[in-house]
Each structure stands twice: as structure tokens, then as C-alpha cells.
């Protein structure tokens, strides 16, 4: 049942993401030519923002899992940590890649090393990559889990920093389009609808991804226990 739900979520999420892509490129209204250097490239926004949203959810799962492992030694916590890192990496890479394409068209440069938002989000993605590759490079054990969950805990500091970066130090990356607090940057109805569809689709997709990843890690743990038992361990 649980296995089916992960696959169903992945499937529905994927269909929703593809629909967002289609609607974003073909159906959503164009933005004003006065407000953007490259209005056509603005349509990347319908992928970029939902992917970033999903990445933040994944980083939240990573933090929760790190917390549960580090303080409670919870095997479920470690599975959440692994799943959060993998989902965070996938969504983070989509966000960074789409942002670079958009930035190249809009600002004339794909990246700016002095922009705090770009850097902190890029670092979060690199942290997820570090955790995914690092876990594969080490034998599973207490030291491995403790070390990587510590990185997960410290790395989460970047999440609120990334969120507030554009409010405090807006250099290139624009401020929030939703929830800015002062009504600026609000979206029209059709644009908001496509964006909402994207956010829901990405959320459903990473939920499926996280469930699937947790199942695989759980099976790996069971396999290791069986191997340990065969080896005559306690």
C-alpha cells in the first residue's frame, strides 16, 4: 500500500509538473515588456519558483531527520535525513539551473557571486550534493550518521538566511512575489493559478520521492541487519 502511494504521488506529481511546464510556456499571460529585459524568459519562473518551494520543503525534512537522528538516534530520522538530502538535491539543481538560464537572459549573467540569495541557495544545493555523495563514500555507521546529521543541522541555518536575503540585501535576485507583506509584486489571477499548480505538483512529486527514498533506505538497513546477523554479530 505504502509502496503504491509513493509511486502514485510520483506519477501525479510528474504529470502536474509537465502540465505546469506546458501552461507556463503556452497559456500563461505574457509580462510587460517594460518590466523585464527578457519577457519570454520570465516563463521559466513557473518552474523556478515551485522547484525552490519544493527544495525548501525537502531541506525542512532533512533538518527534521537530522534532528531526530542526532538527538534520538531514530532510524526513521536517518531515513528522513537521506530522503530530504536526495529530494533537496533534485529540486535545488532544478532551481539553480532554471535560475541560471533566466539570469543569463534577464541580467546578462547566469550567476553573481555577490548576491546573497543566489549564494545561500547554491550552498544549500551543494550541501545536499555533499550529503548524498558523502553518504555513498562512507560505510554506514554511527560516526557517519552523526557527522552528516551535524552538517544537516548547521546547514539549515542557510534556509531562513536564504528566505530573508532578498528582503535585507537585494542585489540582483528580486524579492518575494507572494507574501511580501506590502502587496508589491502581486501576480495576476492566471499567473497565480499556474504558479499554484506548479507548487502543488512539485510538492506532490517530492512527497513521492521522499517516501520512495525512505523505503529504499529502510530496505538497505534491513539488508545490513541480515548480513550482520549472518556474520554472527550481536
Amino acid at each position: 500500500m505504502a509502496a503504491r502511494s509513493a509511486e502514485a504521488l510520483l506519477g501525479f506529481g510528474f504529470i502536474g509538473i509537465m502540465a505546469t511546464l506546458y501552461l507556463g510556456f503556452q497559456w500563461a499571460p505574457s509580462v510587460s515588456i517594460d518590466a523585464f529585459e527578457s519577457p519570454a524568459a520570465q516563463r521559466i519562473f513557473y518552474w523556478h519558483v515551485p522547484a525552490a518551494w519544493a527544495a525548501f520543503i525537502a531541506f525542512g525534512v532533512l533538518f527534521l531527520g537530522s534532528l531526530m537522528w542526532f538527538f534520538k538516534r531514530s532510524p526513521l530520522g536517518w531515513r528522513l535525513h537521506v530522503a530530504g538530502a536526495e529530494a533537496g538535491l533534485a529540486c535545488g539543481l532544478i532551481t539553480v539551473w532554471s535560475g541560471c538560464v533566466w539570469g543569463a537572459a534577464e541580467w546578462g549573467t547566469p550567476w553573481d557571486w555577490t548576491d546573497v540569495r543566489l549564494n545561500t541557495f547554491g550552498l544549500l544545493t551543494l550541501l545536499a550534493l555533499f550529503l548524498v555523495l558523502g553518504r555513498q563514500s562512507q560505510p554506514d555507521g554511527i560516526e557517519t550518521r552523526d557527522t552528516f546529521s551535524t552538517f544537516g543541522l548547521y546547514g539549515f541555518v542557510l534556509v531562513p538566511l536564504t528566505y530573508i536575503a532578498t528582503r535585507i540585501w537585494e542585489i540582483r535576485h528580486p524579492g518575494p512575489v507572494i507574501g511580501s507583506g506590502d502587496g508589491s509584486g502581486s501576480l495576476s489571477g492566471d499567473m497565480a493559478m499556474v504558479l499554484l499548480l506548479g507548487a502543488i505538483s512539485f510538492t506532490v512529486f517530492i512527497s513521492g520521492h521522499i517516501l520512495m527514498s525512505m523505503r529504499i533506505t529502510g530496505l538497505e538497513q534491513r539488508l545490513e541487519q541480515v548480513q550482520h546477523h549472518i556474520d554472527g554479530g550481536k
Binding site: 557571486w113 550541501l127 555533499f130 558523502g134 563514500s137 562512507q138 560516526e143 557517519t144 552538517f151
Partner: peptide, 22 residues
Amino acid sequence: STQRLARPQAVFIRLLMPVFIL
């Protein structure tokens, strides 16, 4: 921070070096 790992030389710690670029 990664010295406690079983294989510290195999971990991809350099991935986090961009933290110093900003």
C-alpha cells in the same frame, strides 16, 4: 568536522568550499 569519518579523505568536503566565495 569530517575527520571522525571512517574514510575522511573520500568525503566530498570541497563541495562546500564555495561558502568562502561570497
